[in-house]
Computed example of a mutant assay.
Amino acid sequence: MPLIPTPSTTVAPSDPAPPPQGYDGTSPFPPDGPAPARDGGERLYVTVTAVIVVLPFVALGLVGWLLWGSLVHPADIVLALVLYTITGLGVTVGFHRGLTHGGYRAVRPVRIALAVAGSMSFQGDVIGWVATHRRHHAFTDRPGDPHSPYRYGTHLRGQLRGLLHAHVGWLFRNDRTPADRYAPDLLADRDIRAVARAFPALCVLTLALPFGAGWLIGGTWVHALTALLWAGLVRIALLHHVTWSVNSLCHMIGERPFRTRRHDRATNLWPLALLSFGESWHNLHHADPTSARHGVDRGQLDPSAAVIRLLERLGWVHDVRWPSAARVAARRA
């Protein structure tokens, strides 16, 4: 699931390129060709990416210092949980299951609200996010996949390097995914274009909200700053790494009870289910990408599917693609 880089009814372009001749699923991916010369725009991209990736992580160190001094307030944790849930569901229900894969159709206010909530996760503008994820599905774990952990082969050193690449390294490659090819439906949607343009402002908002709430609740700048730290930066860092873990760990560790396309190694990884709002049932998702539910077996928690069900009952989403028993059985390995 990406960073920086009307619901769609397509998972990806209908004619993804086949793997290069001779690609066996274990060898390193062929080189991409000579790297483009680094101009001012390239340097700016890397700098901004580094700030977005590193700053929340640095906040974790500050949290350790604050905990050592017992400077943490209950309101900070409540705010962090609330914003984590809102922005996380914006990504999983809005960006992913709705806009990327067309698992349901939402009324206009809900579609916009989910796109705004997902944008406040600091994972990039909505159109770039969707385009990158559709490209991932078109070329899963083969040349063309922007964040496959198998990019450097399946030997131990390649796997370790690939794990780092899939988790965060790919963000620094500036391997742009053309939105006109992978997300033309969103480019044609005036509302979604407006949300995408507002991404920088929404990044400011996602930090200003906890700061302002902390000030109102505690009445001091200390409360405002600790709320910004916990409910702003630490919350963003946690959601980042959970999202990136679906890219990395959920293609290397876990179970594969369902059949996927050749070379696709997506797995189900239960420890991440709750934190990822059900996204870590990744094997089923790759076996049936348009399904609105990813956790289809007994005991598989899928909060995102529960939210979609609630929205359906309220009449705010429709044409939901719930998995039938026959459809699930047909995809069993």
Score class of each variant (00 low, 15 high):
Pro7Ala: 03
Ile112Phe: 01
Leu66Ile: 12
Leu225Asn: 03
Cys203Ser: 09
Ala17Trp: 10
Val204Asn: 03
Leu114Gly: 05
Phe139Pro: 05
Thr47Gly: 13
Ala326Tyr: 12
Asp288Asn: 12
Thr132Tyr: 03
Thr290Ala: 15
Ala198Glu: 06
His263Glu: 00
Val126Tyr: 01
Asp185Cys: 01
Ile217Ala: 03
Ala179Glu: 14
Ala59Phe: 05
Thr260Phe: 08
Trp244Pro: 09
His251Ala: 01
Ala237Gln: 13
Asn283Ser: 00
Phe258His: 12
Gly41Ala: 11
Val130Phe: 07
Ala208Tyr: 11
Ser291Phe: 13
Arg309Pro: 02
Pro210Thr: 02
Glu279Pro: 06
Ile86Asn: 02
Arg111Cys: 08
Trp221Ile: 12
His137Gln: 05
Arg97Ile: 01
Leu202Pro: 04
Ile192Glu: 09
Arg135Ser: 13
His155Trp: 14
Leu311Pro: 10
Val72Ala: 13
Val110Tyr: 08
Thr100Lys: 05
Asp32Phe: 14
His167Lys: 07
Asp180Ala: 07
Trp281Asp: 01
Gly299Tyr: 13
Ala208Met: 06
Leu202Cys: 07
Thr26Asn: 13
His223Ile: 00
His136Met: 00
Leu238Pro: 09
Ala106Thr: 09
Leu249Thr: 11
Val53Ala: 13
Asp15Gly: 13
Val116Trp: 06
Arg142Trp: 03
Val130Arg: 13
Thr154Asp: 08
Pro20Gly: 06
Trp230Arg: 13
Ser121Glu: 04
Tyr104Asp: 04
Tyr152Ile: 00
Leu60His: 14
His223Cys: 05
Pro36Met: 03
Thr226Phe: 12
Leu186Met: 05
Ala305Val: 09
Asp297Leu: 15
Ala237Ser: 12
Phe172Met: 06
Val296Pro: 09
Ala75Ser: 15
Leu62Glu: 13
Pro149Ala: 01
Val78Lys: 06
Pro271Trp: 05
Met120Thr: 08
Pro109Lys: 08
Thr260Ala: 05
Pro257His: 04
Gly41Cys: 03
Thr87Val: 06
Ser304Asp: 11
Val317Leu: 04
Val53Lys: 04
Ala117Trp: 08
Gly25Pro: 10
Arg298Tyr: 12
Pro18Ser: 04
Thr132Asn: 10
Gln21Pro: 13
Tyr23Gln: 06
Gly102Ser: 08
Val51Met: 05
Ile217Asn: 07
Thr132Cys: 07
Val168Gln: 02
Leu44Tyr: 11
Thr9Ala: 10
Thr9Asn: 14
Ala326Arg: 15
Arg313Ser: 10
Thr220Lys: 07
Gly315Thr: 02
Ala201Asp: 07
Leu186Gly: 06
Phe258Thr: 07
Pro271Ser: 00
Val72Glu: 05
Ala198Tyr: 10
Leu205Gly: 02
Gly278Val: 04
Thr260Met: 11
Pro200His: 04
His241Gln: 14
Val307Gly: 02
Leu3Gln: 15
Leu233Phe: 15
Gly295His: 01
Arg157Met: 08
Val107Cys: 12
Gly278Thr: 04
Leu284Cys: 10
Arg142Pro: 01
Gly25Ala: 00
Gly88Val: 11
Leu301His: 13
Arg97Thr: 00
Gly88His: 05
Leu228Glu: 12
Arg259His: 15
Leu314Ile: 08
Gly299Asn: 09
Arg197Ile: 14
Ala201Glu: 09
Pro20Val: 04
Leu99Arg: 02
Leu79Val: 00
Ile308Trp: 02
Phe258Trp: 11
Val63Ile: 09
Leu156Tyr: 11
Gly118His: 11
His240Asp: 03
Arg256Leu: 00
Asp76Ser: 11
